[in-house]
């Protein structure tokens, strides 16, 4: 498995200060598939996903070496613009983080900062994104209600709709369900399965069942190493690495 990927990651090393958190990671992420990243806490999976849209730039002391190319462009080259990159590669976070504004303004924000002012275009984008995020039916009457009044699960779907609205190519999910109840989790999982038609999806999860349910490929991280990366089915049935097997059978982690 070389090229053919939306992302190809080569010899990625990352540090927080002196702490070496990612070691020599190589990976190829395929378009219109769901790639899950699993591993015990502190294994580097969240750091890894945040490298893909340069969110780690915001953390002082963060440093990386190696190469991440997205659609053939090195996203850490000096010409690469983190603002452009984040626009094309969206992200949904662990804890729902809607802006303390109305539902409508949450979704319209991404377009507005891109210079879209046309009310009709905004209306349409809001409706479409909410539909894609399976939230439209629940909120269409109250688009101008404050987003913080929604339930946790609804808030997270709003965050997904917000990410979709700017029409990215990739959506990164960083443990999107860890703050949600099982019913809300099920809804998000359904949604992720549908999203791969239009988007490339990368999801970090510490819930192995979730990885097994939603993903096509799975990477297993261990202490900063990518211990194993393969088709999900294979990882969960016949893992090549002893560590992976121990982890997924619940012997640690």
């Amino acid at each position: 498995m070389v090229d053919e990927g939306v992302f190809s990651i080569l010899k990625l090393n990352a540090w927080y200060g002196k702490k070496h958190v990612l070691k020599e990671v190589d990976m190829t992420i395929r378009a219109n598939h769901v790639t899950a990243l699993i591993g015990p806490s502190g294994c580097g999976k969240s750091t890894f996903i945040r490298c893909l849209n340069r969110m780690n730039d915001l953390i002082p002391d963060f440093r990386l070496t190696g190469e991440i190319t997205h659609e053939g462009m090195d996203i850490y080259s000096p010409e690469a613009d983190p603002i452009e990159i984040r626009r094309r590669i969206g992200m949904v976070f662990q804890k729902p983080n809607p802006f303390p504004k109305s539902i409508y303004n949450n979704i319209a924000y991404g377009l507005r900062i891109f210079g879209v002012k046309d009310k009709k275009r905004l209306d349409k984008a809001v409706e479409e994104s909410l539909k894609k995020a399976a939230l439209w039916e629940e909120v269409k009457e109250n688009l101008h209600q404050n987003a913080l009044t929604l339930s946790g699960g609804q808030q997270q779907r709003l965050c997904i709709a917000r990410a979709i609205a700017v029409n990215p190519e990739v959506i990164l999910f960083d443990e999107p369900c860890s703050a949600l109840d099982p019913i809300a989790t099920a809804k998000i999982e359904d949604l992720i399965a549908k999203l791969k038609k239009d988007y490339t999806v990368v999801i970090v999860t510490h819930n192995m069942q979730q990885a097994a349910r939603v993903s096509d490929f799975t990477g297993f991280f261990m202490l900063g190493d990518l211990a194993e990366f393969d088709v999900t089915e294979k990882i969960f049935t016949t893992p090549a690495n002893k560590l992976t097997e121990d982890y997924i059978t619940g012997r640690f982690g």
């Binding site: 969110m55 603002i83 983080n97 924000y109 991404g110 900062i113 990410a163 700017v166």
Partner: peptide, 22 residues
């Protein structure tokens, strides 16, 4: 909270846009 800034940056907002609007 940092999460608000994070949400804004992840949508491709610049530092100033994030500060001014969020």
């Amino acid at each position: 909270p940092f999460s608000i800034r994070e949400a804004s940056y992840a949508l491709g907002a610049t530092l100033w846009q994030t500060i001014l609007r969020q």
